[in-house]
């Protein structure tokens, strides 16, 4: 029944037998106990489950764990360097980019995908890049500011 998968998650290698029907998000949360990746809608719409698979943003509720075999995965737990927050995490904190925080891991992973392709996005580009991520609390304005904060900080760091 089980299919063996090898994945690298946040730099650490794992190997497990999984049932083919196991969703990637459940593998991350229930097997690896990385519960920072959230399940919001479970219907591919809200983006709370967004992670990076081989460097690109994907909704982990809409992928099977077997599809990630041999892939490099980054989740929200892999963003900080020790006790130093990632500039996006810092931006969300400083700019009040979260209230309940449920959407935040997905927002940060989608924003990181954007900044990796476009380090200096316009406000419009930020809003478009986050079309697949819903926030029921903030009204989005402060999320956009948080991404701008991170973009500025990352430009200085380079």
């Amino acid at each position: 029944m089980g299919v063996k998968i090898n994945v690298t998650v946040n730099g650490k290698a794992y190997s497990h037998d999984v049932e083919p029907r196991t969703l990637l998000v459940h593998y991350l949360r229930d097997t690896l106990l990385l519960t920072g990746t959230h399940v919001g809608c479970d219907t591919s719409s809200c983006g709370a489950c967004t992670i990076h698979v081989d460097g690109i943003a994907a909704k982990s509720c809409t992928m099977l764990a077997v599809q990630a075999d041999d892939c490099e995965i980054t989740t929200i737990e892999g963003m900080a360097k020790g006790s130093d927050m990632h500039p996006l995490q810092e931006g969300f904190k400083e700019c009040h980019g979260l209230q309940c925080g449920f959407c935040t891991p997905g927002m940060i992973m989608s924003s990181a995908d954007l900044l990796s392709k476009n380090p200096n996005p316009t406000e419009d580009e930020i809003r478009h890049a986050l079309e697949g991520n819903f926030c029921r609390c903030t009204g989005y304005h402060n999320i956009v500011r948080a991404v701008q904060y991170a973009a500025e900080k990352m430009a200085v760091e380079v």
């Binding site: 591919s44 943003a57 994907a58 995908d113």
Partner: peptide
């Protein structure tokens, strides 16, 4: 099409 994550997959 859809959003960034959908277009990526």
């Amino acid at each position: 099409i859809g959003d960034v994550q959908v277009r990526n997959k």
